[in-house]
Design a protein around this nucleic acid. Sequence first.
DNA 1: AGCCAGGGTCTGC
DNA 2: GCAGACCATGGC
Length: 274
Amino acid sequence: MADFRFSDNCVYIKSNSFDLRQTLDCGQAFRFSCDESGMWKGVVFGKVLRLYKSGDEIVLQNVSKQEFYDKFYSYFTFDLDYTNIKKIFSSDSRLKTACELSGGVRLLRQEKFETVCSFIFSQNNNIPRIKGIIERFCFSFGEKIDDENYAFPTAQRIAKLTVEDLAPIRAGFRAKYIIDAAKKTASGEVDLERLESLDLQEAREILMKIKGIGPKVADCVLLFSCSQFSAFPMDVWMKKVMATHFEDGLPECTKGYEGIAQQYLFDWARTFGN
DNA sequence: AGCCAGGGTCTGC
DNA sequence: GCAGACCATGGC
């Protein structure tokens, strides 16, 4: 597991399962970017988060011990024992390779409405453009934090908008789905908070009441924000991986954590080819 | 120029 | 239940 120390309002994290690129730029979150100096920046819970690697530690800037345990411990899923999960996965030789090369991926337990919108934007789209749409979405409708940073918009705010209002973010045909998601979330017709306590299939069916959410987007939302670690989003990358390496499906050793295996395989396939 | 991107809806069989 | 057209946009 990970070690933490707290100093000067920063959190210093030592973990053999935390690579910033693999975690923040592996297609589960779209609001992080990295500058030339290796400083990562993102907006989480309406707060600007900066983090970087220093020696064998990851440094989380401007986060108190209290705030860390209240929010970011869960956000970075430090409640999961990745060392043990990788040990179990490694009984399969193909997964072992992915664990060795992409074992710095952590799941992020993200905000639910943000995750719903992000993966609606993701449909039939590529990662750079998804990031652009989300950036414009936050700039246009999110609460201003400082001169260059905006919080993710709330469902209540978006529920009052029309498709035409969303034109500036250039989301294309996805705009109408975002409005539907906001309305159903804000009204309580879809209760995102309840999804964690349901079994996977029930949770999927509730999410799919939102227009624009099918099985793949539902699984992304459940895996990346609702602690449903068995959710296994099948996109074109994963279909390729499965056809090439796992013709008979995932091995038994992934049971209960198929989604984490998915993340290792996804990063491995995108980074190292095939 | 045409193909593809962390897909889903709608229609027609 | 399943195939196929269609959907906006931008990068390559």
